[in-house]
Amino acid sequence: MGVNLFGLSAQEIAEVIAPYGLKAFRGKQIAKGMYQRFLADFQDMTDLSKADRALLSEHFSIDTVTVKAEQHSKDGKTSKYLLAFVGGDCVETVLMRQPYGNSICISTQVGCAMGCLFCASTLNGLVRNLTVGEILAQVVFMQQQLAVAQQKVDTIVVMGSGEPLHNYDHLVQFLKLCHEDYVFHLGYRHITVSTAGIVPKIYALAKEQLPVTLSISLHAPTDELRSRLMPVNRRFSLADLLTAGDAYAMETGRRVTYEYILIAGVNDGEEQARLLAKLMKGKLANVNLIPVNPVVERGLARPKAEQMERFAKVLEERHITVTVRREMGGDIQAACGQLRHQILAGKDVK
Rank of each mutant, 00 (worst) to 15 (best):
Y168E: 05
Y168A: 09
Y168N: 07
D169C: 10
L171G: 08
V172A: 07
Q173M: 12
Q173G: 13
F174S: 13
F174A: 10
F174G: 01
K176M: 11
K176Y: 10
K176I: 14
L177Q: 14
L177C: 08
C178D: 02
C178P: 08
C178G: 05
H179F: 11
Y182I: 07
Y182W: 15
Y182P: 12
V183M: 06
F184P: 01
F184V: 08
H185N: 15
H185C: 14
H185L: 10
L186G: 09
Y188L: 06
H190L: 07
H190W: 02
H190T: 07
I191S: 03
I191H: 05
S194H: 03
S194Y: 01
T195L: 00
A196R: 02
A196C: 15
G197S: 08
G197L: 05
I198A: 06
I198C: 06
P200S: 06
K201H: 05
I202L: 11
I202C: 06
I202V: 14
A204Q: 15
A204M: 10
L205G: 04
L205S: 02
L205Y: 02
A206S: 11
A206L: 03
K207T: 12
Q209Y: 08
L210M: 12
L210Y: 08
P211A: 07
P211C: 08
V212R: 02
V212K: 04
V212L: 01
V212W: 04
T213Y: 04
T213S: 14
T213E: 05
L214S: 03
S217M: 07
S217Y: 05
S217L: 06
L218Q: 05
H219M: 09
H219V: 08
A220D: 07
P221T: 13
P221V: 09
E224L: 14
E224F: 04
R226I: 05
S227A: 15
S227Y: 00
R228P: 02
R228W: 07
